[in-house]
Write a protein that binds this DNA or RNA. Structure first.
Lengths: 189, 189
DNA sequence: GTTGAAGCGGATTGTCAATCCGCTTAGGTA
DNA sequence: TACCTAAGCGGATTGACAATCCGCTTCAAC
């Protein structure tokens, strides 16, 4: 359906993504297309051709995180202990968000009107993998049954946001994650 | 120190705040000064005179919420049971954030470089009141001792943000608040 | 009533996202 | 190798919007 990209175009696209990733790593979360284009030494027009909106760029940056996370969620669903599976998955989801702000943005905001097919597919795959992890824990009675999949999704995003407020997020991950896990864990303390 | 405002100026200031509050209630969280001025039927210059930045306007809108909350926190510190005090205060803090987005913004972001004296004072007063509630619960052993006041602050803001993601925040308050409270509660489940 | 300080207003300027279209290049074909 | 054309490029330009500036108006003290 989509014809393959011309060699120079593919090179430029990659270059833009690399530059954007670098900018993000440097803490520039605004990711202004004009700016990225300048830093990547190419015309603004080229940048907008590849990523019509800032959101499109952000979604492209989130892709790799999605791939990893889906794999992690599937592994978590095969853990011997259902609850341990939940712990592993939520930790992974939280870490990905801290590591990759673009991913955090995509996962925190709802599905986008005109998202790339790739992103929509990833989102669905992750939801499915997560559902199986959570459902297993519910059946085992270790997850409060009144918490929906969406609730958990929101709560993890909220925890990630809580970490971003203030300094040194990484040093607080374990504490905040424990609060979340204790909060959603039913049964024995 | 600050000479009292001229009558017409005070009227305009109030009018701007009222208009901004209305806009906020209608869901316009951008609160663009240009826009507010137009809706309040006055020149942009007037709006910028009273609130040099968007942030100044937001802080002014947050003031009333701060006053109420400080009172609530002080009452909470006098509760018979230390843990109940924590519950009451955190619920109040969460509700204020959902009710007043401007307040949520001020409390979630750190203290501002050039905040109004009023806002700085409010912040300090609330911190003090909150500290006494939390310290009491720590002494009673009902709050995990490795959680600092700042941690709690961040976690409540995170919960408020989690509620904002997705629809119908109010219907989810109780569930999310319970998760938070269970998560920070030490000792018996 | 007069006066000067305080306040007002909105045209204007500066900034930045986003578009548009003439030019360039890749890469297929003969 | 030369040609051809669709795909891609680039950056001047446009549009939107935040923020300023300064001549005019109003308040309120005397």
């Amino acid at each position: 359906m989509t014809p393959p990209l011309r060699a120079d175009a593919a090179r430029n696209r990659d270059q833009l993504l690399a530059t954007a990733r670098l900018a993000m790593a440097e803490g520039d979360l605004a990711l202004q297309l004009n700016d990225i284009a300048r830093r990547a030494r190419m015309g603004v027009g080229t940048a907008y051709r590849h990523f019509p909106t800032r959101r499109a760029l952000v979604e492209a940056l989130a892709d790799s995180a999605f791939t990893t996370l889906i794999e992690e969620a599937r592994n978590a669903s095969r853990h011997d202990d259902a609850w341990t599976g939940v712990e592993v998955m939520l930790r992974a989801l939280l870490l990905r968000q801290l590591t990759n702000p673009a991913f955090a943005e995509v996962i925190a905001t709802g599905p986008d009107q005109d998202a790339a097919a790739q992103t929509t597919a990833h989102r669905a795959e992750f939801r499915a993998a997560a559902r199986s992890v959570l459902e297993r824990a519910r059946q085992a009675g270790s997850l409060w049954p009144d918490l929906t999949d969406d609730d958990l999704h929101h709560l993890v995003c909220g925890t990630a946001l809580a970490l971003r407020i203030g300094d040194e997020p990484t040093s607080r991950i374990d504490r905040y994650l424990r609060v979340l896990l204790d909060g959603i864990h039913a049964g024995q303390p």
